[in-house]
Amino acid sequence: MRTNQASGAALPQMSNESFLTLFMVGVLAVIFAIACLVVPNFFQARNVLNIVTNNWFIIILGIGVTFLLITGNFDMSVGGVIALTGVLSVWFCQGANVSQNVLANGLGLPYILAVGLALLCAVGIGAINAFFIARLKVPSIIITLGTMMLARGIAQIITHGAQRNTSLPDEFGLVGTAALPGTNIKISVLVMVVLVLLAFVFEKMTVSGRRIYLIGANSEASRLSGVKVGRHLASLYMLSALLAGITGILLASEYKAGVSNRATGYEFDALVIALLGGVSIAGGFGSVLGMFVGAIILSVVTSAATGLLLSPDWQFTIKGVVTFLAILAQRFALDRRK
């Protein structure tokens, strides 16, 4: 009787957001259990760890995409920005006039400077998004699809539609390939974990983080409550582009190459994990933590599919079906809750 009462009082207190996150954790547990039963050798320590670490780049992208999705906006340009910053960081670093081959010649800047400049360009793409969306009020999907093309297009111009991977200084490959001492966990994974934690703190504990939810919940009321909606959206777009830029730098370093068609479709993956994690564009809720859970769900499903020896071509179909099921399941769960 007493416990009944307690849970009765506790339940309405839980916000829809935590409810959905918990719901998706439940879904994750079920999917994981099924995968362990069905897929041979699925439950191995290495495998389980891989599930979390293999998708570090999507999770970093997911942070910015999640924030924007909470405010009701899309960012489809992140994949293009990855390609652009990767290519730029390579180009800036490559030795100047070292070869007959145009693609081997770069600007010969020091690595740190090259990275800084590349990130600046990434933020520039974010600023274009911000201008069109926050100032001209153009639908975000149209503009970010355009800047996706723009960023990737510039990367293609610099690499002549292919890639740059020669005459790079040694320190270029350092951050992308180095592992934490004594483990085989890459620095990139550490960066991802740190960024997710920072994002979580930002989202839940800071004033700016709170304002993301306010804008998503009611943009007019936010304006009348003194939130500078346009400026806030603009900084979120630049943040999202910066995160994509960091991912681009890390990936370029890992492969020691700037590839112009790197990260095609990543923007969709980032959107999918956000949706799987319960972020809703309809109204200001969702969280980075949910997005993280969504990312794990997606990788459990895809690695289970690989474990079942399905061809990699299955991934698009699986992602599509899983996303629809997630959207419908979440809606059903929320409806039942009322």
Binding site: N16, N218, G283, G284
Partner: peptide, 10 residues
Amino acid sequence: RSQGLFTILT
């Protein structure tokens, strides 16, 4: 509801 309150927030 549309200008003052964030109805889905606590």
